[in-house]
Simulated scan of single mutants.
Amino acid sequence: MGRLVYDSTTSINLDDRTLAHLQIVIGAKLRRGESFPFRWKLPDGAGGPPGSLWIAPGISLYFRYDESRLPNINLDWISALTASSNSDAGLRLISEPIAAQDDVRDERVGRL
């Protein structure tokens, strides 16, 4: 179980696979200087109640993975998360869609 730590005050427990996908989407938006809300509702028993954060450049984010090897990336999930992040509601933690093809290893995750 990995963790997203926001401004050293809030931490959200997420599995490493979910965390890796969120890191790609959040990193891309922050590189473009975009601010946005991030909303989540975790499955029952998976880390707490629903919540919302305002993500903006200059706010400290820490992505802490439990495993040393990063998971493969589902490009369909990246697209779905990116689409939600560009909506008026902001980035929402949505379920992973079934990939049309095998997962693709994305080495960019390690550089974010």
Score class of each variant (00 low, 15 high):
Trp77Ile: 03
Leu112Ile: 12
Tyr65Asp: 03
Ser11Glu: 12
Arg111Asn: 12
Thr9Cys: 06
Val109Tyr: 02
Ser35Trp: 12
Ser85Leu: 01
Leu53Pro: 02
Arg17Leu: 15
Glu107Pro: 12
Ile55Gln: 00
Ile73Asn: 04
Ser8Glu: 08
Pro97Val: 00
Leu42Ile: 09
Asp7Tyr: 15
Pro49His: 10
Asp66Glu: 15
Ser68Met: 06
Leu61Thr: 10
Ala83Gly: 14
Asp76His: 11
Gly48Met: 01
Thr10His: 14
Arg31Gln: 11
Leu91Gly: 05
Pro57Ile: 01
Ile12Cys: 02
Pro49Phe: 09
Thr10Ser: 13
Asp7Ile: 13
Val25Ala: 01
Leu30Ser: 01
Leu14Asn: 08
Ser95Asn: 07
Ala28Glu: 14
Asp106Thr: 02
Ile26Thr: 00
Glu34Tyr: 09
Ala100Asn: 11
Arg108Leu: 15
Val109Ser: 08
Gly58Gln: 07
Gly33Ala: 05
Ile94Cys: 06
Val25Glu: 01
Phe38Ile: 02
Ala28Trp: 07
Arg111Thr: 13
Gly33Leu: 07
Gly47Tyr: 03
Ser84Lys: 00
Asn86Phe: 08
Gly27Val: 05
Pro50His: 06
Pro97Glu: 06
Tyr62Arg: 15
Leu70Ile: 05
Leu53Ile: 04
Asn74Gly: 10
Thr18Lys: 02
Asp7Lys: 15
Leu75Tyr: 01
Asn72Ile: 00
Ile12Lys: 03
Arg105Met: 11
Ser79Leu: 13
Thr82Met: 15
Asp44Cys: 05
Arg3Ile: 01
Arg69Val: 03
Gly90Gln: 05
Pro57Leu: 04
Glu107Phe: 13
Gly47His: 04
Asp103Asn: 15
Ala100Val: 03
Gln101Pro: 02
Glu107Thr: 15
Arg31Val: 05
Arg69Tyr: 06
Leu112Arg: 14
Phe36Tyr: 04
Glu96Ala: 03
Asp7Pro: 07
Trp54Ile: 12
Arg64Gln: 13
Glu67Tyr: 03
Leu70Phe: 07
Ser8Tyr: 07
Ile59Glu: 02
Asp15Ser: 14
Arg3Phe: 02
Leu22Gly: 05
Ile78Asn: 09
Asp88Leu: 14
Asn72His: 11
Ala100Asp: 13
Arg32Val: 05
Leu4Ala: 04
Leu14His: 07
Asp88Met: 14
Leu19Val: 11
Gly110Asp: 12
Leu42Asp: 00
Leu53His: 08
Gly47Ile: 04
Gly48Glu: 00
Phe36Val: 00
Asp66Gln: 10
Met1Ile: 13
Pro71Gln: 03
Ile26Ala: 05
Leu14Gly: 04
Trp77Tyr: 14
Pro49Ser: 10
Ala28Phe: 05
Ser35Arg: 13
Thr10Tyr: 08
Pro57Phe: 08
Arg31Asn: 10
Phe38Met: 10
Thr82Lys: 07
Leu30Cys: 03
Asp102Trp: 11
Glu67Gln: 03
Ser84Asp: 08
Leu112Asp: 04
Ser35Gln: 13
Val5Tyr: 00
Trp77Ala: 03
Arg64Ala: 13
Gly110Thr: 06
Thr18Val: 09
Gly90Asn: 02
Val25Gln: 05
Arg69Gly: 04
Ser79Gly: 14
Leu53Lys: 03
Ala56Met: 08
Pro37Asp: 10
Tyr62His: 15
Glu34Phe: 11
Leu22Tyr: 01
Gln23Glu: 02
Leu112Asn: 01
Phe36Arg: 02
Leu42Asn: 05
Ala100Phe: 07
Ser95Ala: 10
